[in-house]
């Protein structure tokens, strides 16, 4: 036994020892690679930290000049005027109004399209339409801004002669149509995830397609469908170009879509287009506005993903 081990050791020493040395090199190389890959993965954490860090840093300087109470209660937002006011409410109201119009358009159309696609359309139709929906999700939003300003607004002005050239209605409607493919696609995924056995159970009771879709499949997929809505809301709230082009730039507290008003995003664009000196209160104000925007979308996103996870766990 003992001799055998010694012999084995000897033979290893004789023949494998150079490769053992190589082994260490190999291990080091593997470790370095793993470390570099980890650094790359950490870039996501780094990005998040940078976003939060930059927004907080500039916002803190901003809140040295402006009280937090004023920020959330003042109804005027005029950081670029002599008599400067820094109330975020006008921008929030503009954001919420355009988003509400968008949702009023997108939720009915998106849901109906999803139900149709999942429960009524033939396999072939679905195979063709699904990729087109994905294509539509990728159309740049600036193009939709053009559409809102120069196509839809003139049409709406024929219906409502008092409608200003920049208005939240047109921007909201176009934003809504823009989000339809996304909502339809995500909601349809949720409905397809409902097991076939549940549909069969319903059909076996003599239910029609419509009854099965509305009474069984939709309730079964409801958390996924709501998740689609919420992720859609988050998109509407964070959307920039459509509102920057078509909704106008007056920061007023108004929930009337027929008026022209600025959103948080449109305000940031407006300031960035001007030539504000770095470090001025106006410059800092866009970071404070951005922080509010990030918080709003973050809440929606977390809620949406939690709901999505819930239905993933169930089936």
């Amino acid at each position: 036994m003992n001799t055998a081990t010694t012999m084995l050791e000897q033979s290893i020493n004789l023949t494998i020892s150079p490769r053992l040395a190589k082994n260490i090199r190999r291990n080091i190389k593997e470790r370095i690679i793993e470390f570099m890959l980890m650094l790359a993965a950490l870039s996501a954490v780094f990005t998040t930290l940078s976003i939060v860090g930059v927004l907080l840093y500039e916002s803190l300087s901003f809140f040295k000049t402006v009280s937090v109470v004023d920020f959330f209660t003042d109804t005027q937002w005029t950081p670029l005027f002599e008599d400067a006011h820094y109330g975020i409410l006008p921008l929030v109201s503009g954001t919420l109004t355009t988003s509400a119009v968008a949702l009023a358009v997108t939720i009915p159309i998106g849901t109906i399209a999803a139900i149709y696609l999942s429960e009524f359309a033939s396999h072939k139709t679905r195979e063709i339409v699904k990729p087109i929906l994905e294509l539509l999700v990728g159309v740049p939003t600036i193009v939709f801004g053009y559409f809102a300003l120069l196509f839809l607004t003139p049409i709406l002005q024929k219906i409502f002669p008092d409608l200003p050239g920049f208005n939240m209605l047109s921007a909201g409607i176009v934003m809504g149509i823009m989000i339809v493919p996304y909502i339809a696609s995500v909601a349809e995924d949720a409905m397809r995830a409902v097991p076939m056995s549940m549909r069969e159970g319903s059909y076996a009771m003599g239910a029609t397609r419509f009854q099965t879709a509305v009474r069984v499949v939709t309730p079964a997929a409801i958390s996924g469908i709501v998740a689609a809505y919420i992720l859609g809301i988050s998109r509407a709230v964070g959307e920039t170009m459509v509102v920057a082009v078509a909704a106008g730039q007056q920061p007023i507290v108004s929930f009337n879509p027929m008026e022209s008003a600025a959103t948080i995003t449109a305000f940031i664009v407006q300031v960035a287009m001007g030539d504000l000196p770095h470090g001025s209160i106006g410059y800092q104000s866009i970071f404070a506005a951005g922080l509010v925007l990030l918080m709003m979308t973050l809440c929606f996103n977390i809620l949406g993903h939690m709901l999505r996870k819930k239905y993933h766990e169930r089936y």
Partner: peptide
């Protein structure tokens, strides 16, 4: 069916489903 496939509804509504469908 082979595997129980109740609907995501209350016990009551599951049993009443066929009647509601009618």
């Amino acid at each position: 069916f082979q595997k129980p496939n109740p609907f995501p509804k209350s016990i009551y509504e599951n049993v009443a489903y066929g009647l509601r469908v009618r």
